[in-house]
Design a protein around this nucleic acid. Structure first.
Ligand SMILES: [Zn+2]
Ligand SMILES: [Zn+2]
Ligand SMILES: [Zn+2]
Ligand SMILES: [Zn+2]
Lengths: 155, 155
DNA sequence: TATAATATGTTATAACATAACATTTATCAA
DNA sequence: TTGATAAATGTTATGTTATAACATATTATA
């Protein structure tokens, strides 16, 4: 049985072939680590996990370079508010996002990549661009407390 | 003539007195540097400017502590996407913000603290909280290119 | 195969942030 | 006023995140 991670890796490979990007083994394994991770990881954590998972060295410097590649390929996002990296949730589906949006739980540190309504995003975009400011495709990072943690830490 | 910076400093003092927060000379001078700055500054830049402006030492460690205080007092904001600090634009007015919003120009690095409409913020908040996620008062940091830079760097 | 371009390895260092403990200054009860 | 306490600041060390610079290896392609 091929699981979701394998499907995502295959899709990532295919997409890179199609667009002429070079998905090397190491880059693929960095992506694999992020796909398997239960939450976002720092570049140094990724390098450490790479070493223990694949019994192969990877310097933090290399991790940063591979993350840069994966971000350019839209396979990985960086959380700018926490300096961590995560695999895009939409690799295995066809869903394309112009403006990724993340809900970050400050208790358990899980991150949910959500899709706000087109309507709402349009209003937000219009409202900002009316001031003359040209938005680059930047993401929304919203912090708070997830459902699970609200139940646990009810105080 | 008392300028806007002096008014802001006075207001900050008053507000601290009222709420029992201790606004020391050093803290006040850190705020002054941010009020005078043409853009957001890193903690280390603040320490450097403090030294040259007031001919008095300030370690980066102290700068961080004073920034923490000023943020708690809602006089200073931190840009989480660039690790920089700036004075709140609304010290001298009565305007209170629950969710500060920043437009950050990636060319000239100026930052504008804006106020999106209550209506739009409510829609955004509702839309997120419908997923069960409880937003903490987090800010929006939106990157792009400001009006001025669009004219200059038209390419 | 020779050449160039790209990817990765390696070392050093810059930039951002916190920990831990000492000293000074402010607050307040006796 | 003074002594105890708490808060602020000084100081040093260290942890964390990120980039620079140059060497070597791998891949593409002419
Ligand atoms: Zn995504
Ligand atoms: Zn949670
Ligand atoms: Zn503000
Ligand atoms: Zn600009």
């Amino acid at each position: 049985m091929t699981d979701k991670i394998d499907i995502s890796l295959q899709k990532a490979q295919d997409e890179c072939s199609r667009t002429g990007l070079r998905m090397t083994d190491k880059r693929c394994n960095v992506l694999k680590i992020l796909l398997q991770a239960s939450g976002p990881l720092s570049a140094y954590e990724i390098a450490d996990q790479f070493k223990s998972t694949f019994a192969e060295s990877l310097s933090a410097m290399s991790a940063y370079r591979m993350l840069d590649f994966l971000m350019q390929a839209n396979l990985v996002h960086k959380l700018e508010t926490s300096n961590q990296y995560l695999a895009c949730s939409h690799i295995s589906c066809e869903h394309k996002h112009e403006l990724p949006q993340f809900l970050i739980c400050d208790k358990c540190h899980t991150v949910k990549e959500i899709g706000l309504s087109k309507q709402l995003l349009k209003e937000l975009k219009d409202s900002i661009e009316n001031t003359g400011f040209a938005l680059s495709s930047q993401q929304l990072e919203l912090h708070g407390v997830c459902k699970g943690c609200q139940l646990i830490h009810a105080d």
